[in-house]
Nucleic acid binder design. Structure first.
Lengths: 240, 240
DNA sequence: CGGAACATTGAGAGGGATCAATGGACGTGG
DNA sequence: CCACGTCCATTGATCCCTCTCAATGTTCCG
């Protein structure tokens, strides 16, 4: 597909505080620059990798927005995550040397390609990098636990409230508003991620709007009352 | 609590085909034996580590059976996994240097303590070990994706059928029956893991029994018709 | 033997799914 | 530039699966 070979440098990347280079020393950063020699562009709707593809590299999102999707043998599928700039994709491929999910761009995107064998090699030289790779994988595990909690024990309102808060937070730490956003995914994709039907997503959005908690117009969402949203997430049923 | 210091050797462990030592060379195995110098016993109901505890080590289950539980600020909690002999616990702690979930023994258990800094050190020397650690973490991520799929898109019957199959499979590869098992967890714990209430778990068990698919008596479960169970898991609603 | 913890089963209620129709946004081509 | 088709979102009406509340049964252990 659209494969480009563009020289880039982690050391001058404006995402270095969010991505792999976190906390690396200058000489380590230089080595990393050698590792990451290519970028790759993915058009909206295009797949970065598909389930079953051989695993060779991790990918760091430079720009754009992705979803990851798992598919069962019987054709049922589910969105397992959304990834934005600075996040790492492809960790699922390591175990079996092939990817177990697909990564699809929700808008035109660009990623840094990190050949995994080289990353392992470099990790053996620099313990800082090694530990950072471990942290990235652990972070993914912890995040998944959070999603399991959401799917397993929250009702529709709580799920959607948690979703909005979990989405706006990383956006804010990337310099965007903490109250406004334009969703990059459809109601169906949100529903797939949250384990509910698209109609329920839409209805819940409308209910939040009626209650004055948010303002929604299609993909545009504005959080009017963050505290109310947070209260909805924490509205456990007190028993347990 | 019950902390013992017992000399053990991976090289002579009957779990070495399932645990860390997979595929290590003799000299690497010897180094690993030096790393893993202690075991720890955990009584039934005891916690191996609790959410918030500082992270120092991973744990390899030698015997017994664990559950991992995440708890929200508001007191709601959820079982995120069950672990048996050969599995690795504690990966959640790496990101923030503290554990984000608790590991509780469902029966008297024993684990090997793997100090993580030493494991990282050894990983830098032996690429086989390094890659194996990466595989273990990736496996955890892939497994979690499977649970998310289950929680997000399956109905009660499908969840429980998948649960039984996912439980008996690893038991079988450890030398146990592929049709019979004694559950180590309560109906409530199963329900928590599967995102359903304990009554629904119980009712679904009963329904499976009425249909001649399984035989259940309290904790004892016997799979009479594995194909029927598999068919239930794959009974997607054909649309989508 | 009695109590506590766990499991089963029933009846009723409710939240979300399903089916269905309408409406709005966007892009393409006439 | 408007018309049209497609994709996506909203909203309504109804149904059903699972939750909830409640009672009874079973196992295990002090």
């Amino acid at each position: 597909m659209d494969l480009h070979s563009i020289k880039v440098a982690c050391s001058s990347c404006n995402l270095r505080e969010l991505c792999i280079p976190v906390g690396l020393k200058p000489d380590e950063m230089e080595q990393l620059d050698n590792l990451i020699s290519t970028r790759r562009r993915v058009r909206r709707g295009g797949t970065l990798f598909a389930a079953g593809d051989g695993f060779t590299s991790l990918y760091a999102v430079r720009s754009g927005f992705f979803k990851t999707v798992v598919t069962t043998a019987d054709g049922r599928d589910q969105v397992t995550g959304f990834q934005m700039a600075g996040e790492i994709l492809g960790l699922d491929g390591i175990v079996q040397d092939k990817h177990s999910c697909s990564a699809v761009a929700l808008e035109d995107a660009e990623v840094c390609v990190l050949p995994f064998d080289k990353l392992e090699q470099l990790s053996r030289e620099f313990s800082t990098l090694q530990h950072h790779v471990h942290r990235i994988m652990s972070r993914e595990i912890v995040r998944d636990q959070g999603v399991m909690l959401l799917l397993g024990s929250m009702r529709a309102e709580e799920r959607l409230a948690a979703f909005l808060l979990n989405l706006v937070q990383p956006l804010h730490s990337r310099g965007f508003s903490r109250t406004e956003m334009v969703l990059r995914m459809t109601r169906e994709e949100i529903g797939s991620y949250l384990g509910m039907k698209l109609e329920t997503v839409s209805r819940t959005f409308s209910r939040f709007q009626d209650e004055g908690i948010i303002e929604v117009k299609q993909r545009y969402v504005r959080i009017l009352d963050p505290d109310a949203l947070a209260a909805i997430v924490n509205q456990s049923r007190e028993e347990n």
